[in-house]
Simulated assay, not measured.
Amino acid sequence: MEIVTDADGPVMAKDIARALGRELTQGKVEPVPGQLRELAGRGWLARTGAGRYLPR
């Protein structure tokens, strides 16, 4: 949440993975979109049509 709220604009899963210090390989980035969708489903984040996320 903090990474998304501190960003200057919408963020992608790859941006979140990079900020968490993960390698940008498919196996390390792959879980992030699901986690972001879950937060959006709970109403904590807003998802744009391009798969980017913003704070609510």
Rank of each mutant, 00 (worst) to 15 (best):
D8H: 06
V11D: 01
A19M: 07
R37Y: 14
L45W: 02
P10S: 13
D15P: 11
I16G: 06
G34M: 02
R37E: 13
R22V: 00
V11Q: 01
A46S: 02
K28S: 10
G21I: 06
G51D: 15
T48H: 01
L24P: 07
E38F: 14
L45S: 11
T48K: 00
L24T: 06
A17L: 12
E30P: 05
D15T: 14
A50T: 04
M1K: 11
E23T: 05
T25W: 10
T5N: 14
R37G: 07
K28T: 05
T5A: 14
A13E: 05
R22S: 08
E23K: 07
G21M: 12
R22D: 03
I3F: 07
W44L: 15
A40W: 01
G41I: 01
V32W: 02
R18H: 12
A46L: 00
M12G: 06
G27F: 13
I16P: 06
A19V: 07
G27D: 15
A19L: 03
P10D: 14
M12L: 07
V4N: 00
L39P: 04
G21Y: 06
L39Q: 08
M1L: 13
A19F: 03
D6C: 12
G34D: 01
A17E: 11
A19C: 10
L36Y: 00
M12Y: 05
K14S: 08
G41P: 15
D15K: 01
Q35H: 09
L20D: 06
G43Y: 01
K28L: 09
G41N: 15
A17N: 13
Q35M: 11
A50N: 04
L54S: 09
T25G: 12
L36F: 00
Y53P: 05
T25R: 13
